[in-house]
């Protein structure tokens, strides 16, 4: 799932899907469609525009000494390039998106904690909750580049979360920090009917799914 699979060339009989649907029939989680080259922008508010000199990233909460990184300090952390499929709860999926950023393993490695949950907080007031086990071991990043270029504000720049194994509302735009906690505190959409975890392969869209 984490790399483009060019080997799937079968065509199901009677398949009347979109242009590229045949190549990736097994790659779409249930209920999703392939948006192709598009990249929809869904926003719950105006687009914040934070300049790098005003940007910082904090790891706080139940930690042994909170951490604050400036933009420059963030840039000096080890960087990873990732190619992943993304799945929005509004049912579009986009295959093979390419990003660059810092693994959450690296950022969480800056603190000592026994917390099991985090709440990501963002410019504009957006929040989303994540279990630490869902973002550990190379499964989540704070990314500042998309498709080889700096991430545009409309897509969450200067930096956003990337948690491709969960619905894309978890990949919070304009992320500014992580609050670590022993208890699960629901975020912006999770307090209003959306699933606490949001695994697209289990179709965990809404509370109770």
């Amino acid at each position: 799932m984490s790399s483009r699979d060019g080997g799937m060339t079968f065509l199901s009989r009677g398949f009347v899907g979109r242009r590229d649907a045949r190549r990736d029939a097994g790659r779409l989680p249930p209920g999703q469609y392939d948006v192709g080259d598009g990249f929809p922008v869904l926003s719950a508010g105006p687009t914040p525009r934070t300049a790098p000199e005003d940007w910082d990233f904090t790891v706080t909460g139940e930690v042994d000494g909170p951490v604050r990184l400036t933009w420059q300090e963030f840039q000096e952390l080890p960087r990873e390039d990732v190619t992943v499929d993304i799945h929005c709860v509004t049912k579009w999926s986009k295959f093979g998106t390419t990003w660059s950023g810092v693994a959450l393993d690296t950022l969480l490695g800056l603190v000592d904690t026994s917390a099991e949950h985090l709440l990501a907080y963002c410019d504009g007031g957006y929040t989303t909750n994540l279990a630490l086990e869902d973002v550990a071991d190379g499964r989540a990043w704070v990314v500042d580049r998309f498709d080889g270029r700096p991430l545009e504000p409309e897509h969450g720049g200067p930096a956003r979360l990337l948690v491709p194994e969960l619905y894309f509302w978890k990949s919070a735009k304009w992320v500014r920090g992580l609050y670590l906690s022993g208890t699960e505190e629901p975020g912006f959409w999770e307090t209003l009917g959306y699933h606490l975890r949001g695994d697209p392969w289990l179709e965990q869209r809404y509370a109770g799914d």
């Binding site: 929809p40 869904l42 508010g45 709860v89 509302w169 959306y194």
Partner: peptide
């Protein structure tokens, strides 16, 4: 166009109401 409908203050853009 978000996963829900968000109504924000016309002056300060704070969230006034959300409905899903």
């Amino acid at each position: 166009d978000a996963p829900g409908m968000v109504v924000r203050c016309l002056v300060c853009e704070a969230v006034v109401l959300r409905i899903v």
